[in-house]
């Protein structure tokens, strides 16, 4: 999608993004507190829901891939999320040996 794409007359994209975000929020809440799934499955599912919801914000609300530099913006954010995963997972992994 380009920044110069046709402007819709009704904010469908925003409304769909908002409704999906609400569904994902309540689904994560249910999985965490009421589903009775094993802990590892719960963690996997709620983290997956969070990543999907963050992507919704980036693409449907922030239009990360629009404009001439859309590709650069998207790769910049993907790289920053890669760094975040390395920092967070790496810290948890290495600290399990000391704590």
């Amino acid at each position: 999608m380009g920044a110069n794409s046709h402007q819709e007359s009704f904010p469908w994209k925003h409304i769909i993004g908002f409704l999906l975000s609400l569904v994902l929020t309540f689904a994560a809440l249910w999985v965490a507190l009421s589903s009775g799934l094993p802990l590892k499955a719960v963690i996997g599912i709620i983290v997956l829901f969070a990543v999907i919801q963050a992507s919704l914000q980036l693409f449907m609300f922030m239009h990360v891939n629009e404009s001439d530099s859309g590709r650069m913006q998207t790769f910049n954010m993907m790289y920053s999320f890669f760094i975040a995963v390395v920092v967070v997972a790496g810290s948890i992994w290495v600290m399990q040996f000391v704590l």
Binding site: M77, S80, F81, I83, A84, V85, V87, V88, G90, I92
Partner: peptide, 9 residues
């Protein structure tokens, strides 16, 4: 994102 990653870690 990197800043918040350190705090989450």
């Amino acid at each position: 994102v990197a800043l918040f990653a350190t705090l989450f870690a």
